[in-house]
């Protein structure tokens, strides 16, 4: 299986480092200061959403059975043969927003300048070099990992086994639980 991005919501502290890294990766300059000088500004394809006391970096799941690919009348929604990621072939996109309508995760939006469908492409340049996608690499708390489903499942099985053996893997979480519990009153 190809690698996918997996998210651990407990670890997200909403720094939005992933948003910045995503925008920079999709700039021409590939640097923060260079990206800021570009017009239009590159935009992030991942958005950290508010979720009560939690936060969640929402982006395309690159579904194996992708509704956006099925719905696109122009064949613009394309699967990258090398990485298995779903991306927009802008030369074919007519801006009908069928993909926006059918995406169950709200992960396809509209580029307001190009008037084309706009979504995560899972950083083909980076992954071709063997690097993690920009959002994963930028996350300071490892709230996202880039791994195959088998790798994640194996990791979880190992944790389950250790737990069953009465040797749970210690979770170091500082005051994070306290911090979240104290945020309660300030969240609508």
């Amino acid at each position: 299986m190809d690698k996918a991005i997996f998210t651990f919501i407990d670890r997200c502290v909403a720094c939005k480092g992933c948003e910045i890294a995503c925008a920079v990766e999709h700039s021409r300059a590939k640097s923060l200061f260079g990206a800021l000088a570009e017009s239009p500004h590159p935009r992030p394809r991942v958005r950290v959403e508010n979720a009560g006391v939690h936060s969640y970096p929402a982006r395309c799941m690159h579904c194996e059975d992708a509704a956006c690919i099925a719905a696109c009348p122009m064949g613009a929604m394309t699967r990258n043969a090398a990485t298995n990621a779903v991306y927009v072939d802008e030369s074919k996109c007519i801006g009908c927003w069928m993909c926006v309508m059918v995406c169950p995760f709200g992960s396809v939006s509209a580029d307001p300048v190009a008037k084309k469908a706009f979504k995560c492409d899972r950083c083909p340049d980076r992954t071709a070099r063997g690097e993690d996608p920009a959002c994963v690499a930028a996350c300071p708390t490892r709230a996202m990992i880039y791994a195959t489903p088998e790798e994640l499942a194996a990791h979880r099985r190992q944790a389950t086994a250790m737990n069953a053996a009465g040797k749970p893997v210690a979770r170091v979480a500082g005051n994070v639980d306290l911090w979240r519990s104290l945020k309660g009153g300030t969240q609508k």
Binding site: C12, A14, N50, A51, P140, V176, K183
Partner: peptide, 10 residues
Amino acid sequence: MKPQCGFGEL
């Protein structure tokens, strides 16, 4: 602005 940065809050 929400969610606000956890590093700042911590």
